[in-house]
Nucleic acid binder design. Structure first.
Length: 788
RNA sequence: GCCGAAGUGGCGGAACUGGCAGACGCGCCGGACUCAAAAUCCGGUUCCCUCCGGGGAGUGUGGGUUCGAUUCCCACCUUCGGCACCA
């Protein structure tokens, strides 16, 4: 009679989760200065979730389960692993969700955090909950404010009036990084340009360094996106004298070699020279162009423009060129003025055609200069430097990157710790008065200006400098300020004296592996690098890159589109946890395919995984009952060792999470065929041990069935190299590169013996048809190829 | 236009360093157990041909290198992602 108990995932899962919690199994102490520290340490980090919705979705499950597998394998392999969790609780998504619900953002967010934390615990992730942080807690944002003041003190954050992106729907300024095709990345509304005084982080101060990744192993894709975004281009700044006024106008060009081909000159509509000197008609055009939205302007296909009535003198040949004003020239790139070379620039060419302006070719098919006077015949590359030198222009570099605007005219964010005094100007809130608490106000709805501005109790203060009446800054910070340093706070989240102790941060960081979506490439991932570089310059941290290794999980899609709260196509883990258990959910999501590729979510995969788990359950009970305690090594021993090598390599070196599951399935299949073999018990123990990072609950339970305990802290198995060596192997024999036979051969045989063996095969002989091979190739341990 | 990634059975995918293409799983087909079903177990499952021994083709397309190419090189097609009147 079968005495195997039924596999009851929920009972087992609750049981072990309680044990781990009671034992604080995944709480990790920080090193103490002066005491010896672990040699191998690992900071496993996944991007922290927005608690803007009431539930995790399968994308989260993928992300955090991957981190969990990595965490377990590293821990059991002797690494000192820290793996914290927290909440990106401030910001627009959270506030909008609260407004929709009609509850105060803090109430909504804290309820969501409760729910999500419970879901995370139910999935059994090995998280050090004692380090938990949330961006909206004063204990956290006190230090966000403190850091903000440091950036200002180091001139890396400043106030400036200028054009900013205004989202009319969210009623706040948004950063360049979150404007997509002229629309708000969050809500899709068309973005307007407004002139406002705002705080900016000086990300451009690090533009050059942000292009390099000397200590970071990042996907090529991501570094390419960031480089693209930073948009460095080398060129020269050339001065053109205006014939009628004598003023100099600077132009940025990457092609000084084409200077002789410049036949006209164009100013952006916003260029100050237009308003100062251009014809009335040109001024009128500039006014109209400036009123058009970003989207209209970039979507325009036909070139428009107006002649200003003025001329610029080409410094290279003294020729006078008409100066036009046209909206295809942008004020915020380069100098807002260009020399137009219609023969060698597509846009200038179109403009010249539209307005019948002259075109002069100056580079021939061979890349040599023509129509360029004394430079004729010179290769274009050489001519670039030669012409720059000749006219005394200066070589410059331009970037597409703009400073990061961080003021938000919304309620639910970190208050900006500055005071505006009529006498003293902008004064920092004294450190002893931090944090500036975000008050619980009633009317927090967006209104086109900061809701805090109407709260007299919050706004009216005395100036810390002169003691006179003054006003707080009514804006809050972009939530990406919070997430630019949260990974540092995790390390020392209870510190009341400082944002963190540099000793512990320098021990754990840079982050060993960071897992998160590629959608943050030009935002969060860039801002965090900027923060760390700045903090390194101030001596706060001992490293210049926050994330040593980066991994992007693919999107989990539903109906072909990425699961997201805004799109409403979200499926959470609860239902399948109810049905199959947490272990099954964890295995299902990782078994779906390579974790860095998009995957369409279907719960159907859980059926197969459920089957696998029940099979393992029965198999372990059977082996525990029938297999001898130990015995001679045989085929199962070799298979088990091969599986150890494969799983370990996949997880630790290749960061590939789906193939280890296949490998353990294969091992189990082989054990099933001989559950009473002398080495079946060893192979079964290996299988249970190897699947533990994926399915920690069932593995723990079965480890007990096999007579052991505490698998979560058992050493990770190591492959016995001697068991990987095979005495015999399957020799593949090819004739002219095609497989014609395969049979067992002794691994000790030399090349000549293998060839003799191959030629001895009847089937091979038939294909040789009596001919003598003119070439033989032997790959030891694998194959013989006979070429006739 | 520039930059990046990817194309393998009905499906998800495997093949890591140039060496047996399709592991593992889903689905499907057949069988066992059952009054029946579920569950479970066993077998089959790239395509074409076959005298059932086997033979041929095959990893987006066309070339190339090589004894040998999913893997390397060239050209192209398709899909996805990023940037874009950026001078």
């Amino acid at each position: 009679m079968d005495t195997t108990p039924r596999y009851e995932p929920h009972e087992i899962e609750q049981k072990w989760q309680r044990v781990w919690e009671d034992e604080r199994a995944f709480s990790v102490p920080n090193p103490v200065e002066g005491q010896p520290t672990a040699e191998k340490h690992w900071y496993q980090l996944e991007m922290l979730p927005y608690p803007s919705g009431p539930s995790l979705h399968m994308g989260h499950v993928l992300n955090y389960t991957m981190g969990d597998v990595q965490t377990h394998v590293r821990r059991r392999s002797g690494w000192h692993v820290v793996r914290p969790m927290g909440w990106d609780a401030f910001g627009l998504p959270a506030e909008n969700a609260a407004i929709k619900e009609g509850r105060h953002p803090r109430v909504t967010i804290e309820a969501n955090i409760e729910t999500m934390r419970a879901q995370m615990k139910r999935l059994g992730w090995a998280i050090d909950w004692e380090r938990e942080v949330a961006a909206h807690q004063p204990t956290f944002y006190r230090w966000t404010q403190w850091l903000f003041q440091q950036f200002v003190a180091h001139d890396l954050c400043y106030r400036k009036e200028g054009p900013v992106n205004w989202c009319p729907n969210d009623q706040t300024v948004i950063a360049n990084e979150y404007v997509v095709d002229g629309h708000c990345e969050r809500c899709g509304a068309e973005v307007e340009i407004r002139n406002m005084t705002q705080w900016f982080m000086r990300t451009t101060a690090y533009a050059d360094e942000l292009l390099e990744y000397p200590d970071a192993e990042w996907p090529e894709k991501t570094t390419a996106i960031q480089r693209n975004w930073i948009g460095r281009s080398e060129g020269a700044e050339v001065l053109f004298k205006v014939d009628e006024t004598g003023d100099d106008i600077a132009v940025f060009t990457t092609r000084p070699d084409t200077l002789f081909g410049a036949t006209f000159f164009v100013l952006a509509p916003e260029h100050p020279f237009v308003d100062a000197h251009a014809s009335d008609e040109a001024k009128e055009y500039a006014r109209r162009a400036g009123a058009r939205s970003v989207e209209e302007r970039s979507a325009a296909t036909e070139k428009t423009g107006v002649f200003t009535g003025l001329h610029a003198v080409n410094p290279v040949n003294g020729e006078k060129m008409p100066i036009w004003v046209a909206d295809y020239v942008l004020m915020d790139y380069g100098t807002g003025a260009i020399m137009a070379v219609p023969a060698h620039d597509e846009r200038d060419g179109e403009f010249a055609e539209t307005f019948s302006l002259p075109v002069t070719q100056v580079i021939d098919e061979d890349g040599k200069l023509i129509n360029s006077g004394r430079f004729d015949g010179m290769p274009a590359d050489e001519a670039k430097t030669a012409i720059v030198a000749e006219i005394g222009a200066k070589a410059t570099v331009n970037y597409r990157l703009r400073d990061w605007s961080v003021s938000r005219q919304r309620y639910w964010g970190c208050p900006i710790p500055f005071i505006h005094c009529e006498k003293c100007g902008v004064v920092p809130v004294p450190e002893s008065d931090l944090p500036v608490i975000l008050p619980d106000i009633e009317d927090y709805a967006p209104k086109g200006m900061s809701p805090l501005a109407q709260n007299a109790e919050f706004m009216n203060v005395t100036c810390p400098s002169c003691g006179g009446a003054a006003q707080r800054d009514p804006d809050t910070m972009d939530t990406f300020v919070d997430s630019s340093w949260y990974f540092l706070r995790y390390i020392d989240s209870h510190n009341n004296e400082a944002p963190f102790d540099p000793f512990v941060v320098n021990y754990w960081l840079p982050v060993s592996q960071y897992i998160g979506g590629i959608d943050h490439s030009t935002g969060h991932l860039l801002y965090s690098r900027f923060f760390v570089k700045a903090m390194n310059d101030w001596g706060m941290v001992g490293f210049r890159e926050p994330f040593a290794r980066l991994f992007h999980q693919g999107w989990v899609t539903l109906g072909g589109t990425k699961m997201s709260k805004t799109k409403g196509n979200v499926e959470g883990p609860d239902e399948i946890v109810d049905r199959y258990g947490a272990d099954a959910v964890r295995l299902t999501i990782l078994f779906m395919g390579p974790a860095d590729q998009d995957m369409e979510w279907t719960p159907a995969g859980a059926d197969g995984i459920g089957r696998f788990l029940r099979r393992v359950w029965r198999l372990v009970h059977e082996v525990a009952a029938v297999a001898p305690a130990s015995g001679e090594a045989g085929a199962l021993t070799r298979k088990a060792n091969e599986t150890i090598a494969r799983v370990t390599d996949d997880v630790l070196r290749r960061y590939q999470f789906h193939t280890p599951i296949s490998a353990v399935m294969e091992l189990c299949n082989e054990i099933s065929a001989a559950p009473d073999a002398p080495d079946a018990r060893f192979a079964t123990e290996t299988a249970v041990s190897l699947i533990q990072p994926y399915a920690p609950h069932i593995a723990e339970e079965l480890w007990g069935v096999l007579g052991h305990e505490r698998l979560w802290e058992a050493p990770w198995p190591e492959a016995d190299e001697s068991q990987l060596v095979r005495a015999k192997f399957e020799l593949v024999v090819q004739v002219n590169g095609k497989v014609r036979d395969r049979f067992e051969a002794d691994a000790s045989l030399g090349e000549e013996e293998l060839v003799a063996l191959a030629r001895g095969s009847e089937r091979v002989a038939a294909f040789l048809d009596g001919a003598e091979p003119r070439k033989t190739i032997v790959v030891p341990g694998k194959l013989v190829n006979l070429v006739v």
